[in-house]
Design a protein around this nucleic acid. Sequence first.
DNA 1: CATGAATGAGTATTCATTCAT
DNA 2: GATGAATGAATACTCATTCAT
Lengths: 233, 233, 233, 233
Amino acid sequence: MPTGLAYNHWSLTSGYMLVGGINLTSKKEQRSEETKHSIIAAAEKLFSKQGYETVTIRQIAKEAGCSHTTIYIYFQDKEALLYALSTQPLELLKTSMDMLSVDAFLSSDEKLRRLNEQFIRFCLDNRSMYSIFFEAKSARVDEFEPELAINRIRQHMHHIISRLLGTYLNVPDGDGLLSCSRIYFYMLRGIVGTYTQSEESADSIMARLSPTFHAAFEALLLGFDKQLQDRNE
Amino acid sequence: MPTGLAYNHWSLTSGYMLVGGINLTSKKEQRSEETKHSIIAAAEKLFSKQGYETVTIRQIAKEAGCSHTTIYIYFQDKEALLYALSTQPLELLKTSMDMLSVDAFLSSDEKLRRLNEQFIRFCLDNRSMYSIFFEAKSARVDEFEPELAINRIRQHMHHIISRLLGTYLNVPDGDGLLSCSRIYFYMLRGIVGTYTQSEESADSIMARLSPTFHAAFEALLLGFDKQLQDRNE
Amino acid sequence: MPTGLAYNHWSLTSGYMLVGGINLTSKKEQRSEETKHSIIAAAEKLFSKQGYETVTIRQIAKEAGCSHTTIYIYFQDKEALLYALSTQPLELLKTSMDMLSVDAFLSSDEKLRRLNEQFIRFCLDNRSMYSIFFEAKSARVDEFEPELAINRIRQHMHHIISRLLGTYLNVPDGDGLLSCSRIYFYMLRGIVGTYTQSEESADSIMARLSPTFHAAFEALLLGFDKQLQDRNE
Amino acid sequence: MPTGLAYNHWSLTSGYMLVGGINLTSKKEQRSEETKHSIIAAAEKLFSKQGYETVTIRQIAKEAGCSHTTIYIYFQDKEALLYALSTQPLELLKTSMDMLSVDAFLSSDEKLRRLNEQFIRFCLDNRSMYSIFFEAKSARVDEFEPELAINRIRQHMHHIISRLLGTYLNVPDGDGLLSCSRIYFYMLRGIVGTYTQSEESADSIMARLSPTFHAAFEALLLGFDKQLQDRNE
DNA sequence: CATGAATGAGTATTCATTCAT
DNA sequence: GATGAATGAATACTCATTCAT
């Protein structure tokens, strides 16, 4: 079951360059795009592996096969690069989650199941996302506009999960539901955090462990159910 | 409420130096120990607050009230200090978990409950532990001796949890149990990861959220139970 | 009020391109000239405002409305631009001073008065000139041709002033006159140096302080006179 | 006629280290002082020659014969070095001028004469002072405390000169006097600016030109006198 | 044992300049 | 002629670490 997320954001952005099969971009522009792409790819890779702080601009440049100064042609500074990296994937994730959450043909537990998978895959595909999403690295995160992308989606996701859980468990908003969605988030974070740092490919991880992930959330849902029953008796 | 862990390991370690009331250490040695102690205490405090990377040797020295060069008398480098710092707490944690796991008067679910709490508190009290324990920071981790301490205890903990879960769920070793203990670990990691980076004090977090943490593991155990029942029917 | 200097040298230089009403320059050449002009204008503006060092090539390009690489088509490097900028104004200043000095209808003190004003205005209008004129910025000044323009005019100006002072004071060439013209130069430099770095506009400065400037030189001349009288008594 | 200023501020500061002929400083401290001194000397030399902005920390380090990082042991940053350089000499100058201005045995024109010479020598001995004193290089100058040293003394000097001129010319405070003291300052600045950038030694300059400097101010004073007489007639 | 002095390698960032088109 | 892409050298500043005492 594909998650349907276009994780490689370039496949999308490059789209406008092709009009009726005719490539309107000059060679220059194309090379420029390639360079930018390679910088993004390099940064993505390194941020994921080592974390934002410890990666140096020069490392990124080396990995991208360009001079470190070139990076500054495309991105104002290191932080801008981080946010350029994260904004689009996050928006895509959000869109995808929104679409999922309003799907009329799916039950709420099916929705949760897919949401889990989507989110896990997303984090494994964009491993630098983990620190951005969960660890809110830099000061800017709490001060400027880019933060919004992250915070907005984080809260949005909490909201969606909370709503789906409420529907599934058939409980109204309140402390009980808040607690459940918090726990649900712990699990997501625990899973993603565990594998985000491994060298294993996303595909391999999913192939090997998606039943475990599935079981994890199933257990949680069953557990929540049981807790509610016990409380009501 | 038995966290039972003596986090200040010096209170313990200094003990052996007194044998039958006779102080075997010279004054010099004592002062030396004090210096080492103050360095460790300072590093512990700062690493916990700011994280390993951002703390500087000079900061530690200042906090410890000695020259930065003195630190190199006792520890080969900054990383060695980190590991010196972590080894003992980890051993204490291990000991404590071991004692817990063999306690004849506790049920396995009570043991799990206490283990959760112990571990969470431990990580919140030693926040630099999180990255050491879960993220295996530096290359050294995979190369030198200190790694052992961490890996040993990590595996050991898996083992204990696995055993306790097996007893509690009444299932033999095997894939099912492995999956359950993995999931259990995800939850631990998710919780610890979430709060390890916050500014809130361990006490405050525990006061505010320990019921949630408790509910999380309870839900899991209930869920595991249900999954087993369903599978057997 | 005859400052009489055409600071915009392009109004003059473009003149020669029209011979007998026939435009000998092609459209291309014309556009090229325009670009060059806009670069010079931009550089002039920015150097005057911010000083040579802090202005960047890209700033100039932006101000000139062209690419930064274009600048290198017209000028070998940033310094060459500075000298290209300064040579012509300096020549104009020289010409203007020459014309003034040979004017048959003006008394020598009137000539000095106008010369002061011309020179002060010139420096305030071309503030980057100050450092070029008085401080002989770069090594190149002592190595290449452009220096000549500056040194030549500097000496020329000394010469003119010396001559005018000699006439005015009615003394022959010699140490006394040299000393007087040096002192005269100190005053010029002191005035120009004081205001060349201020943000105030040339017009505003002149409006506010030209009586002071006038008084300064008047005092000097009166003082020189008195000194000579005293010496002769 | 010695100006009485201890331009080498080290001769003063080192004073306290000798108590009754016994050198209380350890070798370490001594070497430290030497290093600091060499850094100051190097910075002084280079700032004077090239100006603050264009001198690099590494240049200073090279000139001082130490690593560039050593500079940061003694001075917080480049700017701190500039101010460390300037504060003491400025204070000494101020003290010296104050003492001069209250001297009961000197006439006001004699005071002015000595003040000129003192100030000129001071600027020639501390050539980086010129830009600090007259050009107020960095932003900090207008924002933070160090500025005070410079502004305070600048204004103080204006004040002293104004007062002495008022006494000498026998005119009350007012526009006339303001104009005169401004002009007086132009001359000071012109002289100092002219020779501050030359390679010639202060001694040589003074030997060669102090009569000219003297003549310059004498001419000004005579001129001011004459202007006042003319105005009163 | 302890320390102040000193340093080399490294950080993000900027800028004048060149190259390929 | 004109330009966007790319770069090497340089900038101030930091930090873990070593050396001499």
